[in-house]
Design a protein around this nucleic acid. Sequence first.
DNA 1: TCTTAATGTTACAGAAATATTACAAATTAA
DNA 2: TTAATTTGTAATATTTCTGTAACATTAAGA
Lengths: 226, 226
Amino acid sequence: MKGKIFIIEDEASIVQLIQHNLEKEGFVVSSSLNGNEGLKELKKFEPNLLLLDWMLPDLSGIDICKNIRRDSNFKSLPIIMLTAKGEEEDKIKGLESGVDDYVTKPFSFNELSARIKAVLRRSDPKVVANELIFEDLKLDRTEKRVFRSDKEIQLGPTEFRLLEFFLTNPKRVYSRDQILETVWPNNVNVESRTIDVHIRRLRQSINIEGKKELIRTVRAAGYSLI
Amino acid sequence: MKGKIFIIEDEASIVQLIQHNLEKEGFVVSSSLNGNEGLKELKKFEPNLLLLDWMLPDLSGIDICKNIRRDSNFKSLPIIMLTAKGEEEDKIKGLESGVDDYVTKPFSFNELSARIKAVLRRSDPKVVANELIFEDLKLDRTEKRVFRSDKEIQLGPTEFRLLEFFLTNPKRVYSRDQILETVWPNNVNVESRTIDVHIRRLRQSINIEGKKELIRTVRAAGYSLI
DNA sequence: TCTTAATGTTACAGAAATATTACAAATTAA
DNA sequence: TTAATTTGTAATATTTCTGTAACATTAAGA
């Protein structure tokens, strides 16, 4: 279950962009174009996180923050502040008045999304599942569990990291050296053939009856998740 | 055991909202849309708390309060008054005629719920359990008790905090360091292996005959509540 | 088809991580 | 105060994981 996000921002085009994209990611989103109204609506909406523009026509971001922190029901509502470039002092004020993170305009939606998730993961882990999915394979990073077709699979630590690595870039072929560099702790010396053995172990674990092989061998190149 | 709440409020939509949400929280709720009828029903229903709209078509909130306080069976019934914005003088009158708290419309359900619980905790602590539940495991924070399948379990202080911690985020894997940071008082120096021992003690206490293990070891990562 | 290089498979010993136990010091209750 | 409980640690036991080597199989080009 994804969380609820409220936006207070006076530029309608920005609101629209953010709202649309967040909804596509499964969040429930509501918004307001000005501070006073926004505060009221926010308290009715009860979001898990607030995106707050720092420069509003009526109320300043600081005032809104203060108001929110004073209300016992929203004392710990995570706030990400949206600030225009160069408003350095605002960032400082913002952090002082209890903002959790800030994003500088113009920003890419990906950046915003990543920060939202990071903040939510800290404050309210339940609302942001942290999983990697590929076909019928699912790896849950917070619970450290792996499922194939909803059937749980037990993996050792190395196989888990290995699969996690492949899942971050499905279909891409990685050489043994690349795998070693990323999946193994730095400065360890392991034979590159050792990877073959771990690949075998991983294959054995995730290949369940009747389902297709998920790891592809690319001769002279390496391995990939199909 | 959660308590019984009676609502006297003439706006049906508000009643419906509150009633539905309170029931979802485990309260038993009954309501009436007008004062005279409400008073009668209330006395039959014998609630632990009354939510009372201040502006009713027939009887005023003050009249209802007086009536209730005159009745020896309901002298100490906690009352939360619902008041429209700006009716400041009503709040004062309300508090004078023995209201325990008030909430201004429009309000968020969370706010109302928090106030209800606060009032009940003062007047009748038994009916607002402050408990964490996971499967057949129950931890009562106010009473500091733990139950597995309704059988009480004795835990030392550290094991209690440890279990409380796991219960706030079931299924999530925590590293020994994270556990140390959160469960132990700040700035103590404890070996991270010490946690293993406490986990063992906790396991021993909460694992009762015939019931499944509830704490999962995740190699190279930490522990989680299943 | 033969050759060869690359990958697959297996077994195993050592390593690493966790479980368990016992105990002494510290804390709390009686 | 004494007794009882709780805590942290170290020592030991147990389990699980890892890397490697040896051997088997496969693929692709000559």
